[in-house]
Design a protein around this nucleic acid. Structure first.
Ligand SMILES: [Fe+3]
Ligand SMILES: [Fe+3]
Length: 943
DNA sequence: AACAAAAAAAAA
C-alpha cells in the first residue's frame, strides 16, 4: 500500500460516532479500516474453493484480495454527502462536527431531511458508477453498475433506481461533494493499486452470483470494521493503519479455513478413525459406497443417498463431506434437518466428528442454527473464543488447532452461517432462496461449505420450491451437496437434481435415471452427468403384515386387548390430536398408567421429558423386565415420526401416505431382540391400519374419516390403501426391499388400483395436484430468482410487479419458507402472589414479581415451557384478539431479557386453567393443552 | 387449504 494524503475536506468528514460526544471516526479511516479487513478476509478467511471460483470467473489473476479490499474500501464513500454529514446538526452536543466540515468549505445547509430516502449506500452506488466510467475503466454502464451495486447493497439490499437517481442529481447539484467522493475512491484505488484488477473485472461484467458473494464479503468487512472494540474510535484510537488491523485481527480471533484430515483409502479404516469406532467394526455398504462416489466425483456435484434408517446415513454424509471439502476447497459443513429437535440430536455427533477430523490455524467454529439454540445445553457448554474470550489455548496454544468452539463474533444475528460448521434446521438453507435482507451473508457462509440436507423426503411442495432454488444457487457456486432420504419420489428427486445441475451447468436439461426398484441407491450428479448405483442391502429384512381394522371404538378396544392381557409394547399413531386423545382415553381405561399420550401440544420441557422416558424404556439397551416395560401403550400423533430410536412389538396407525406409513413401520421390531422380549401377539411384526369409515372393495373405493382426510390428501390415502390391499385381507410387505416400488406406486399418476376406483381416484388426484400447484405458486411470492435470470443485482429482490417487495414482505411476515398460518406460541407460567413461577415448580418456589428483572436460570426455566395454542387460534379474528390479549398480559420485564424478549406469557392457575380471548384452556400433564369444552370433559374416565 | 407437525422474527 502506498500512502497518499487525504485532503482537509476528506479528513473533516465523520463516518462513526460513539457514546461520548467527542467520540468519532473520520470517513477515510473507516474506509481504510474496511479495506484492510476486506483484504484480510480474502487472504486469511475465505474458503479456497470460493476464492478460487471468483478468481477464475472474474479473471482476478491472484489479485482477489485487492478486489476484496477495494470493494470494502469504497462501500461508504456515499457518506461524503450533505444528507449524511448533516445528520448531526440537530444534535447540540455535536455541533463541532458540522463546523469542522463547513470550515473546509463544503456546503452544509441545515439539519437534513429524511435520510431514509437518501441512503448513503445509494450515494456510494452513484459515485462509483460515475467514477468508473469517468476514469475510463469501462465504457459499459452495466459493467460499472455491477460493481457499484455491491457498494449500494452494503446495508443488505441493493439501492433502488429511484434512490440512485436522487443521488445522481444531488451529485450534479453539488460538485464539491462529488469531488470528495471521487477523491476517496481514487485514493483507495491508488493505495491498493487496484486499477488493473478493476479493469479486468469490469471486462467480465460480474453477474448476480458473483455480486452476491462479493457483497457478502463487503457486509462482513463493514460489520467488523464498524465494531469499536475492534477498530477503536478517535480520539483514543491507534492511528497506524497496520497496527489497527493487527490489533483488530488479534481481538477478533477468527480462524482461517478449516481443513479436513485425509481419510484412509480403506473405508473400514476411514470410518474407524473418523468416528472412533471399535476395532473390527465394518461400515455398512452404503457408507463404503458413498466414500467411493465422493472420491470419484468429477468436480463439485450432488450426491443423493436413498436408504432406510439405521444404516448410518449421518456418518456416511459426514465422511463424504470430509472428502468433498478437501476436493473442492470448502472450509466447513452444514448439516440441515427438518426440525429443531432433530438438529439438537445431530449437534453433538457433528461436534465430535469435527473435533476428530478438522483442523485449522485456529479453533474451528461451530454453531447450532435454529431459533431455540440458546436453550440447548450442549451448545451452551462449548468453549467460547473471539472478541476477547479465550476459553481455550490459554495454557497450551497448540490446543487451539484442533478444538471446536463457539465464536463470539459469529454468535451475533445473521452471522451463524459464517461459522465453519453449522448444524441447524433446513430453514437455514431455504432462507438462501428467500428474498430477504442480508441474504448475501447466508450465501457467503453456505458457499464455503459442503451442504448436507437430512431427511430430504420430509418437505412439502412449498418448501421444495425453496429447496430447489437454494440448490440452484449452490450449484452455481460449485458447492458440493449431499441429500439424505429414506426414499424420494422420483419426480421430487428429479426436480431437486435438475435445479442443482441447472445452476451448475446452465440450461442443459438433464434427466435423472429412473432407479425403479433399486434400493438402497446412491445418485451422483456432476460434470459427467447423472448416474445411479444400487448398493448392497444393509441391515435386517423383515416381512410385515398389514391389516385393516374398522374405525370404531370396539375394534380399537379389540386390538388393545391382547396387549392388556399379555403385555407388550404397542404404538397407536393417530392423525389428529383429537383422535389421539380419544384413543388415549380408551387405552387408559384398559391399562391405566401403562398408557402414554404424546403429541405436540405439550410444554416443550414436558415433551422432552416424556420422549426421554420412552427412549430409555423402548430404546436398544432396554430388555423386557430390565428397563423395557412389561406393558406399554403409546398413543401419539405424527410426533413419533421424528427420529426417536424406539422399538415396538406392533403398531396401530391411522391411514397415511405410503412413505409415512412405512417410516412409522420402521418403529416396529426396529431392534433385533430375543424372542422373550416380545409378547405372543407381537412375535411377528404386524401393523393394523385404521381411519377408514368404509374399507371399500373391488367395486367401491374406501372412504376415510373426515379428520384423517383433512390432514392427508385423499388421493394418497386411497392409493396407499389399495396398494396394501386393505380393502381385502391386507398383505405382507417385505422391507426394505419393497419400499421404493410401494412409495413410487402411491405417488404415481395411475397406481395399480381396482378398476372401479378409477373415476373417483382421478378426481382426488386432480384435486391433490391442484393444491400442490397453488402451494407452489404461493411459494413464488418471495422466491429469489436464479442468478442468470436477472440483468441487475437489484432484480433479485424485485417483486412480481417489479417493485422491491422485500421489505414490505418481511414486515408483513409474508416472506417465509414454510407454508403455514400464523400460530401463537406461549410460555406457560403459574400464577403466584404478586407475580408468577415457572410451570411445574414446587409450591414453595420463589415468586418472580411482575416487572422485576429475572435471573438467567429462571428465564431459562420459563423459556422451556413453550407450547403452541390449538389450531383455532390461527384463524383471523381470534388470532388477532388472542395476540393482543397475550401481549397485554406479558410481563414487561421480559423485554429486558434475551431469552424471553418478544415471547408471549400465559398465566394459568394451579389446575392449569386459564382463558385466552374468551376461549377456556387447561394444561394437563397427561393430556396436554386442552381447549373449549374439552377442558372439563376430558377429566372423566381418564383419572 | 384450514382436524398434524414443523420454523422464525435488529444491525453496523
Ligand atoms: Fe454504511
Ligand atoms: Fe460502513
Amino acid at each position: 500500500m502506498t500512502t497518499v494524503g487525504w485532503s482537509p475536506q476528506a479528513l473533516s468528514l465523520w463516518a462513526k460516532t460513539g457514546p461520548e460526544s467527542e467520540d468519532w471516526l473520520d470517513l477515510p479511516r473507516h474506509l481504510t479500516d474496511s479495506a484492510a479487513i476486506g483484504g484480510w478476509l480474502w487472504r486469511c478467511w475465505l474458503a479456497p474453493g470460493v476464492a478460487g471460483w471468483l478468481e477464475d470467473e472474474l479473471d482476478l489473476r491472484g489479485e482477489g484480495d485487492v478486489l476484496g479490499a477495494w470493494l470494502a474500501g469504497v462501500h461508504d464513500v456515499g457518506k461524503a454527502s450533505e444528507v449524511f454529514e448533516g445528520q448531526l446538526m440537530g444534535d447540540h452536543t455535536r455541533l463541532p462536527f458540522a463546523e469542522r466540515i463547513r470550515d473546509v468549505g463544503l456546503p452544509l445547509s441545515g439539519p437534513a431531511g429524511p435520510a431514509d430516502s437518501h441512503p448513503h449506500s445509494a450515494v456510494s452506488h452513484a459515485a462509483l458508477k460515475r467514477w468508473l466510467v469517468v476514469e475510463g475503466l469501462t465504457r459499459s454502464s452495466r459493467a460499472a453498475a455491477s460493481l457499484a451495486e455491491i457498494a449500494g447493497a452494503h446495508h443488505g439490499l441493493p439501492a433502488t433506481p429511484a434512490e440512485v437517481r436522487r443521488a445522481e442529481s444531488a451529485a450534479r447539484r453539488q460538485p464539491s461533494w462529488a469531488a470528495v467522493q471521487d477523491e476517496l475512491i481514487a485514493g483507495i484505488t491508488d493505495r491498493l493499486g487496484a486499477h488493473d484488477v478493476l479493469g479486468r473485472v469490469l471486462a467480465v461484467e460480474p453477474r448476480a452470483h458473483h455480486q452476491m458473494l462479493l457483497t457478502g464479503l463487503v457486509v462482513m468487512a463493514d460489520w467488523i470494521a464498524s465494531n469499536p472494540d475492534l477498530f477503536p474510535l478517535l480520539p483514543a484510537a491507534l492511528l497506524d493503519e497496520e497496527a489497527r488491523l493487527a490489533d483488530a485481527v488479534a481481538t477478533l480471533d477468527l480462524a482461517g479455513p478449516a481443513r479436513p484430515r485425509v481419510l484412509e483409502a480403506d473405508p473400514a479404516a476411514a470410518y474407524r478413525h473418523a468416528f472412533a469406532w471399535p476395532e473390527g467394526r465394518r461400515p455398512w455398504p452404503v457408507q463404503a459406497e458413498i466414500l467411493r462416489a465422493a472420491e470419484q466425483m468429477e468436480g463439485p456435484g450432488l450426491l443423493c443417498v436413498e436408504a432406510p434408517m439405521g444404516v448410518g446415513k449421518t456418518e456416511a454424509a459426514l465422511a463424504a463431506a470430509q472428502v468433498m471439502m478437501r476436493r473442492t476447497g470448502r472450509s466447513g459443513v452444514i448439516v440441515a434437518a427438518p426440525t429443531m429437535a432433530t438438529s439438537d440430536a445431530l449437534f453433538r455427533r457433528v461436534q465430535v466428528w469435527a473435533e476428530r477430523n478438522l483442523e485449522g490455524d485456529g479453533p474451528v467454529s461451530l454453531v447450532l442454527a435454529h431459533s431455540k439454540a440458546a436453550l440447548n445445553a450442549e451448545a451452551a457448554a462449548m468453549p467460547r473464543v473471539g472478541m476477547g474470550s479465550q476459553d481455550i489455548g490459554r495454557d497450551d496454544p497448540h490446543d487451539r488447532h484442533q478444538s471446536v468452539v463457539a465464536h463470539q463474533w459469529l454468535s451475533g444475528r445473521k452471522r451463524g452461517m459464517l461459522a465453519s460448521i453449522a448444524v441447524g434446521t433446513v430453514d437455514q438453507v431455504l432462507f438462501m432462496a428467500l428474498q430477504s435482507r442480508h441474504v448475501m451473508l447466508r450465501h457467503l457462509g453456505l458457499a464455503s461449505k459442503v451442504v448436507v440436507i437430512d431427511e430430504a423426503h420430509a418437505y412439502d411442495s412449498y418448501m421444495n420450491q425453496y429447496l430447489s432454488r437454494a440448490l440452484h444457487w449452490l450449484g452455481a457456486y460449485g458447492v458440493p451437496v449431499v441429500l439424505l432420504s429414506a426414499t424420494l419420489p422420483h419426480a421430487i428427486q428429479q426436480e431437486l437434481v435438475a435445479a442443482y445441475m441447472d445452476g451448475r451447468h446452465g440450461g442443459r436439461r438433464i434427466t435423472a435415471p429412473e432407479t425403479g426398484a433399486a434400493y438402497p441407491v446412491i445418485t451422483t450428479a456432476d460434470r459427467a452427468g447423472i448416474r445411479a448405483e444400487q448398493t448392497p442391502e444393509s441391515g435386517r429384512r423383515s416381512e410385515v403384515e398389514f391389516t385393516a381394522v374398522a374405525d370404531d371404538e370396539d375394534s380399537l378396544r379389540g386390538l388393545l386387548t391382547p396387549c392388556v392381557s399379555d403385555g407388550g409394547c404397542l404404538l397407536v399413531v393417530c392423525s389428529t390430536v383429537a383422535r389421539a386423545q380419544h384413543a388415549y382415553a380408551l387405552a387408559r381405561d384398559l391399562v391405566g398408567d401403562d398408557a402414554v399420550l404424546l403429541h405436540s401440544r405439550f410444554l416443550a420441557r414436558d415433551r422432552v421429558e416424556k420422549e426421554a422416558v420412552l427412549v430409555t424404556e423402548l430404546g436398544p439397551d432396554a430388555r423386557r423386565g430390565q428397563g423395557r416395560p412389561e406393558r406399554r401403550i403409546v398413543v401419539a400423533t405424527q410426533v413419533v415420526e421424528q427420529s426417536l430410536d424406539l422399538d415396538f412389538d406392533g403398531m396401530v396407525t391411522d391411514v397415511a401416505p405410503m412413505d409415512l406409513i412405512l417410516q412409522r413401520t420402521g418403529r416396529v421390531h426396529r431392534h433385533a431382540r430375543p424372542v422373550e422380549d416380545r409378547p405372543g401377539w407381537g412375535r411377528a411384526p404386524r401393523v393394523w391400519v385404521r381411519g377408514a369409515v368404509d374399507p371399500g372393495d373391488d367395486a367401491t373405493p374406501p372412504a376415510f374419516e373426515s379428520g384423517v382426510e383433512a390432514v392427508y390428501a385423499p388421493a394418497l390415502l386411497t392409493a396407499t390403501w389399495g396398494l396394501l390391499s386393505l380393502e381385502r385381507d391386507g398383505r405382507t410387505v417385505s422391507l426394505p426391499r419393497e419400499i421404493p416400488t410401494l412409495v413410487a406406486g402411491a405417488y404415481a399418476e395411475r397406481p395399480a388400483l381396482p378398476e372401479a376406483w378409477g373415476e373417483s381416484f382421478v378426481v382426488q388426484r386432480k384435486e391433490w395436484e391442484a393444491r400442490q400447484e397453488t402451494a407452489r405458486n404461493r411459494a413464488k411470492g418471495f422466491l429469489l430468482p436464479t442468478a442468470k435470470g436477472v440483468k441487475y443485482f437489484r432484480d433479485l429482490w424485485a417483486g412480481p410487479t417489479g417493485d422491491p417487495g422485500t421489505e414490505r414482505g418481511e414486515a408483513a411476515g409474508l416472506a417465509q419458507v414454510r407454508d403455514t398460518d400464523p400460530t401463537l406460541e406461549v410460555l406457560l407460567v403459574r400464577a403466584a402472589e404478586g407475580g408468577y413461577v415457572p410451570w411445574g415448580s414446587p409450591g414453595d418456589a420463589e415468586v418472580t414479581f411482575t416487572g422485576k428483572a429475572l435471573s438467567p436460570w429462571r428465564a431459562r426455566q420459563i423459556a422451556e415451557s413453550s407450547v403452541r395454542l390449538p389450531g383455532r387460534f390461527s384463524r383471523m379474528p381470534l388470532f388477532e384478539r388472542a395476540l393482543d390479549e397475550l401481549e397485554q398480559g406479558t410481563d414487561v420485564a421480559w423485554q429486558q431479557c434475551s431469552l424471553l424478549r418478544g415471547q408471549l406469557q400465559l398465566i394459568a392457575d394451579e389446575e392449569g386453567r386459564t382463558t385466552v380471548a374468551g376461549v377456556d384452556l387447561r394444561y394437563d400433564l397427561d393430556l396436554g393443552l386442552l381447549d373449549g369444552p374439552q377442558t372439563t370433559r376430558m377429566n372423566e374416565g381418564t383419572r
